[in-house]
């Protein structure tokens, strides 16, 4: 069996480009229809990363920016899970990059001016490769909620931004991971850009008490699904017929 094109993205599951309650989308959403086509070789390929590209400490946000002997303020958590494709096959050796606010809800970015303080021991980014079973784990602090300009009183639920490559440019994805039980999730116009409640639920990490390290670190589990691809015994119909 030969691996073929990637399954089309389910555009009724993914958020549409125009979601007026998230105001910035209004002037940044294309208005003409996208041109749909099957993945070509330019999209079934994509960059390949290896252990020479990153360092083991990059996945530990508790220590990757902290001064020796110190650590960031906040609730210590492990965020872990697997990267699978839509065929439920693990995606091994793929690069994950995360970024987040600190426990007070402040980002280390020259454009963030929120009054919560910068944590001198917290950079707020990390990266790792999945193992041969598609498994990944980060150690960090639970991010704080923060206000943002949309309506006058919008607060983002606690979230971690996640970027994933997969093995094809067609699989490239950025998403956000939320935390079970957060009342701000349901009120967020960015979350609610996703029309289907089951799809929203897929972005909510679950408390994983079995993986928690007693007296040390609480664990949340967040599995990620990338686009899958067809494999077939039959040759494709040549295009244009």
């Amino acid at each position: 069996m030969k691996p073929g094109p990637y399954y089309q993205r389910d555009r009724q599951w993914q958020p549409p480009a125009l979601t007026p309650d998230y105001k910035t989308s209004v002037s940044r959403s294309p208005q003409y229809s996208m041109i749909s086509l099957e993945t070509t070789v330019s999209e079934i390929t994509g960059p390949v990363f290896g252990h020479n590209d990153i360092d083991p400490i990059d996945k530990d946000l508790l220590s990757n920016y902290a001064k020796p002997g110190e650590s960031p303020i906040g609730e210590r958590i492990i965020l872990h899970g697997r990267v699978l494709d839509e065929n439920a096959k693990p995606v091994p050796n793929t690069l994950l990059e995360i970024w987040q606010a600190n426990a007070g809800g402040r980002y280390r970015h020259k454009k963030d001016t929120y009054l919560a303080p910068i944590d001198p021991n917290f950079g707020g980014c990390g990266r790792t490769l999945t193992d041969e079973n598609g498994y990944y784990a980060f150690r960090t602090v639970k991010p704080g909620a923060y206000p943002w300009r949309n309506w006058v009183n919008n607060w983002r639920p606690a979230h971690v931004h996640i970027s994933i490559f997969g093995s094809a440019f067609a699989q490239r994805l950025i998403t956000q991971c939320y935390f079970e039980g957060d009342p701000l999730i349901a009120k967020c116009p960015i979350v609610n850009s996703i029309p289907d409640p089951d799809a929203v639920d897929q972005l909510v990490a679950r408390l994983d008490l079995n993986s928690t390290i007693p007296l040390d670190t609480i664990t949340y589990k967040f599995d990620i699904v990338l686009r899958g691809r067809r494999s077939t015994l039959f040759e494709n119909r040549p295009e244009g017929n």
């Binding site: 958020p15 439920a88 970015h109 979350v191 897929q202 899958g228």
Partner: peptide, 21 residues
């Protein structure tokens, strides 16, 4: 038995922290 692709969310204004610190 297919899984659904994880929904995308905006990269937001601070994407550089993660991808280009």
């Amino acid at each position: 038995d297919y899984l659904k692709e994880t929904p995308s969310q905006t990269a937001g204004p601070y994407v550089h922290i993660g991808l280009a610190p």
